[in-house]
Design a protein around this nucleic acid. Structure first.
Length: 586
RNA sequence: GCGCUUGUAGCUCAACCGGAUAGAGCACCAGCCUUCUAAGCUGGGGGUCGCAGGUUCGAGUCCUGCCAAGCGCGCCA
């Protein structure tokens, strides 16, 4: 429809050019918007306002000329001039009604489009370190990322979802060592647990498993373990040097093979847990990409060689630096430490080079907002690799501040004091949790009140939308009980009988679904879809209360049933994209 | 100190990317169940869009400055 109106306007412009009212050189961008106010018709164009200046005419005067030059069209019943120079278009309701027919035929396909056809997009999200279970902070990124991916798929992109597993690096060593120390405790060795170790119960559970499997070859006397280890922070030392010394000690006392066991058992255990957790949350990936693999197969070396060849690397203070500051970063960054180890950033460069090599047209990285300072250096790396920087989009998800009533909940993975995503799901359920996370703009800092989410979960708007769906199902059940036959064709033939204000409004909203979906997808804004579904549900509930659907007259009854079935279908399509269930009764 | 993000009703948030009279939910007040599920609906009160300038036909939206909140500024990840 929008397209048709745009064509009409273009024709009008041509006519005005011929008449000499408009100069030949004007080539305006014709924008047609849906009117926000029913009084302003169905569509509106601000063209006269935009063109007024180049045409050297008053906007209203120009608008009048445009309207006069507009060709007739059967679906356009009225064209009106309004306000400072808007042109409002009123569409024939009968033309609008056909959307019900379309929805009935397209079913689950209704709303999908092909704007992204032929483009490969990679969406990388969550990518939390496998050093502990996911917490509620990761939940937002998980819900947001998965819906963004689904939306892109719905508008035709070839979407690849990926989780980058940081299975190399110091944090993993800290985890392995933490597990070993807990294991020694189980064996009865008196070791003092480091303040910088992972203290969560899950570490103890993993250690207990190892101990219970009667593995005794990992046991070492506490005295040997602690011998000459520099003091921990509570004892006036430095927690970092303390734990590094413990890691080194673990490696020497256990030897490479046995140490590797702890590393691997910890990694497998936690990664398994994360995978299961996300799966139960409705989040699945095509690929779990290993950082260690990049180290092992020489990808990191290759990436650095590429940067070196481009003259982007230099040595200083025994380390290798990437000259990112000339490419927009605040300062240069170390890629190889003085001790010869790669930094996390080095493998991340390799990872992005790998992504580029895989030929994605667009790479979307979804990060927690605390990583925002990292963006310029990754962009610098992409530029240095000679790739098109615009292929990378980094979407930041602000952290949810957790409250329990008035009280702010402190979170720290290290201390083990946090609310896990699993706990949240158990308390509020997958549907409510997903809906809540995705309801707000991702850049919006949000307050997550656990007390509210748990104790008053019935107030969660997800139920409002699901209830609308269940109500349609209920009406259909009632139809059976009353032993009326539903005649779809009869209803379609009588769509013109849908003349109530509520019905016209609802039809209009149904017709907006495809464009809402497209906008939500292209702007990476799932909340737009949520907003839309709440609106659709609201209009349905209002209609439900205002009119009876199961009336005596079959023509009207079937027309109304076709309408509410279209509502049901769109609700299902929308909730399906959010990966939220559609209960038939509540 | 510098940088990123945010600031809209008492509270939590929208506003179709510059459009017409800024909208929802919660909370508060008054109504609606002998008719398809009241987890619903109807009506009401409630706003200096953080502040001050600027850009233009037109600004909550763009620019500049200031104020406030969150986060970030490692040879950590």
């Amino acid at each position: 429809m929008k397209q048709k109106i745009a064509e009409l306007i273009l024709q009008a412009i041509e006519t005005l050019k011929v008449n000499g009212i408009l100069g030949q050189d004007v080539s305006p961008q014709v924008t047609i918007e849906r009117s926000r106010d029913a009084g302003h018709g169905d569509y509106a164009s601000n063209l006269a306002l935009v063109l007024a200046k180049p045409a050297k005419l008053a906007p209203r005067q120009l608008a009048e000329q445009l309207v006069a030059a507009l060709p007739q069209h059967e679906a356009v019943v009225k064209v009106e001039l309004a306000g400072p120079g808007f042109i409002n278009f009123f569409i024939d309701p009968c033309a609008q009604h056909q959307i019900i027919n379309r929805i009935h035929h397209e079913r689950a396909e209704f709303g999908l489009s092909r704007v992204g056809a032929g483009k490969k997009v990679q969406v990388e999200f969550v990518s939390a370190n496998p050093t502990g279970p996911l917490h509620v902070g990761h939940g937002r990124g998980a819900a947001y990322g998965s819906v963004v991916a689904d939306l892109l798929k719905a508008v035709g992109f070839d979407v690849h979802r990926e989780y980058y597993v940081n299975d190399a690096g110091r944090q993993m060593d800290i985890l392995a060592t933490s597990i070993w120390l807990r294991y020694l405790e189980e064996c009865g060795e008196l070791v003092v647990f480091p303040s910088n170790g992972y203290r969560g119960d899950y570490v103890r559970e993993i250690a207990l498993d190892i101990h219970n499997s009667a593995a005794i070859e990992y046991r070492r006397p506490a005295a040997l373990v602690l011998e000459d280890i520099p003091a921990d922070e509570p004892q006036g030392g430095d927690k970092e040097t303390h734990i590094d010394a413990l890691i080194a000690r673990a490696k020497t006392l256990l030897g490479n093979t046995l140490y590797r066991d702890f590393f691997q058992i910890g990694l497998n255990n936690i990664l398994q847990d994360i995978k299961a957790d996300l799966h139960e949350f409705g989040v699945d990936y095509q690929e779990w990409f290993s950082e260690r693999q990049l180290m092992d197969d020489g990808s990191v070396e290759k990436a650095l060689a590429c940067l070196r060849a481009g003259g982007h690397l230099y040595e200083k203070d025994g380390a290798v630096w990437f000259a990112s500051s000339v490419l927009g970063d605040e300062k240069d960054r170390v890629v190889v430490r003085e001790n010869g180890q790669y930094t996390y950033f080095a493998s991340d460069i390799a990872y992005h080079m790998n992504k580029l090599d895989r030929g994605f047209d667009q790479m979307i990285d979804i990060w927690g907002a605390d990583h925002h300072g990292y963006i310029p250096r990754v962009r610098a790396a992409i530029k240095a690799l000679g790739a098109d920087e615009s292929k990378l989009s980094v979407l930041l998800v602000q952290f949810a501040t957790l409250y329990r009533g008035e009280e702010k909940v402190q979170m720290s993975t290290r201390s083990g004091e946090f609310v896990t995503l699993r706990q949240l799901r158990n308390e509020v359920g997958k549907d409510a949790a997903r809906f809540f996370y995705v309801m707000r703009r991702s850049e919006q800092h949000m307050d997550f009140d656990l007390k509210l989410a748990t104790s008053k979960s019935n107030e969660n708007p997800v139920f409002y939308v699901q209830y609308a769906y269940a109500r349609v199902c209920s009406v259909l059940r009632q139809l059976d009980e009353k032993a009326w036959e539903r005649n779809v064709a009869l209803g379609m033939a009588n769509l013109a009988r849908l003349t109530e204000e509520h019905e016209l409004l609802l039809i209009n909203t149904l017709a907006r679904f495809p464009e809402t979906l497209e906008r939500a997808a292209l702007h990476y804004e799932p909340h737009q879809l949520v907003q839309y579904l709440r609106e659709l549900a609201n209009e349905f509930h209002t209609y439900y209360n205002a009119h009876q659907f199961l009336v005596e007259e079959a023509a009207v009854r079937d027309a109304r049933l076709n309408l509410i079935c279209a509502v049901k279908q769109v609700l299902a399509n929308g909730l399906g994209l959010l990966n939220i269930t559609t209960p038939e009764s509540m």
